[in-house]
Simulated scan of single mutants.
Amino acid sequence: MDWSAPIDAYCERLGPQFWAEPVNAATNGAFLIAALAAWMLWRRQARGDAAVLFLVGVVACVGIGSFLFHTVATRWAALADVVPIAVFIYSYFLLAMRRILRLGWGWSIGATLAFLAASYGVAPMLSGVLGSSAGYAPAALAIFGVAAVAARRCPPASAPLALTGAVFVISLAFRTSDIPFCPSFPLGTHFVWHCLNALVLYLLIRVLVLVSPAARSGNLTGATGT
């Protein structure tokens, strides 16, 4: 496989040049802003929670990887784009099972593996409708599913998760409409996906901070102003 082969996957790109997707590239800054906001939240309310801090770092990597893909636009850059996203999805799901649904580690790991398998099974079935966005549909369904179960097992997390799921569905709509609306809107709509998805990642981390062991124990070191 030629990892340097160019990829033209989005409406805005008109050529192989580095800055051929300026809006798509620049809006990856939203992920860095989301990571910074999430880090500040972690520092105030969940300092010491290494798992949440790990996810904050992954969000920053999502922005960097996506920037590479929308500038270099090669196969290796596409890998740099999708790997951090996958790491976030499955790491977050594992933590959601453990901290929101309060499952043991064995059940949490088993559920995560089942979700991984189901994701690869469901996505191809939806590709005819959602195109390349089909891979994200299982994640959206998972957010709503966890929100529904959390209504009993962890009520404070339920409504915020449902709201986050709604924002995610809207962001997916913009990602999916990028190519279909390209003839009438040459800029494309992928950049809106970046902005809204960055918000989604921040909101997801916010839910974990809400149920973080550090926050629940009152270990809010950041609240002292240090």
Rank of each mutant, 00 (worst) to 15 (best):
F54M: 11
Y202E: 07
A215E: 13
R216K: 10
T226D: 11
L41H: 13
P180K: 15
L201W: 08
A123E: 10
A151K: 14
V209Y: 07
A5R: 14
L116P: 01
L187E: 11
F144N: 05
A34Y: 04
T74Q: 09
A214Y: 05
Y90Q: 03
T176M: 13
F93Y: 12
A139Q: 07
L101G: 06
P124T: 04
R152Q: 14
A20N: 05
R102N: 13
N28P: 05
R153T: 15
A5M: 12
I205P: 01
S119E: 06
D178N: 07
V149Y: 14
F93N: 01
V52A: 04
G135C: 06
A50G: 08
T112H: 06
L141K: 04
A60Q: 02
P16S: 12
L55D: 07
Y92D: 08
R175L: 05
A215G: 04
L204H: 03
A30Y: 04
L94T: 07
D81P: 00
S212T: 03
F69D: 03
A151T: 14
A38T: 03
V82I: 14
M97L: 11
I109Q: 07
I85L: 11
S132N: 10
R43W: 11
V87R: 01
G29T: 12
V211C: 06
G165L: 06
S158E: 09
L208Q: 05
G145M: 12
A5I: 03
S91W: 09
A147E: 05
F181S: 14
L203M: 13
